[in-house]
């Protein structure tokens, strides 16, 4: 067990437990925020695991997660729009903390891996993760009112 896997374990345990606790208790708004937090917690853990196992191919999982996680949150934001309309759930502190975690992990992996094609892939994953997280949070907070309804 090396430091990368240890970091992944800590991130996965903390983020996963927090998301599980948030998604099972409280108001619908809190639950969707916790569901959104899952992506931000699991995707950096997958990146760290790929580095820890020394298998660059595992990065594909993180790429797919960064792509599909926000899509899943947007599904909930769209289809639960009536329940979320009065609440307008938002947790911008948590959102930016998750974005900071993603940026820190991507930068650490870039430094460890050195320049090259893998580094470009890592940067793309980081941009997708942070951008998707911010867009999903804004959609949950009611930032895109014009696409609601239906």
């Amino acid at each position: 067990m090396n430091g990368w896997i240890l970091a992944a374990t800590v991130g996965l345990g903390g983020g996963g437990a927090a998301a599980l606790w948030g998604v099972t208790t409280g108001s619908p708004g809190r639950r969707v925020i916790a569901q959104n937090l899952t992506t931000s917690a699991v995707c950096p853990a997958l990146l760290l695991l790929s580095q820890g196992y020394g298998r660059p191919a595992y990065v594909d999982l993180a790429l797919l997660m960064a792509l599909l996680g926000p899509v899943g949150t947007l599904v909930f934001a769209r289809l639960l729009a009536d329940d979320l309309a009065d609440e307008r759930p938002s947790a911008w502190g948590l959102t930016w903390a998750a974005a900071g975690l993603a940026a820190a992990v991507v930068i650490a992996l870039c430094v460890a891996g050195g320049p090259g094609r893998a580094m470009v892939k890592l940067l793309v994953i980081g941009a997708l993760l942070i951008g998707g997280n911010v867009i999903a949070s804004r959609a949950l907070a009611g930032g895109f009112r014009e696409v609601r309804g239906g």
């Binding site: 569901q35 699991v42 997660m65």
Partner: peptide, 11 residues
């Protein structure tokens, strides 16, 4: 909602 979290954790 819980099922979507379960999907990520299972992966």
């Amino acid at each position: 909602l819980v099922l979507s979290v379960l999907g990520a954790v299972l992966a």
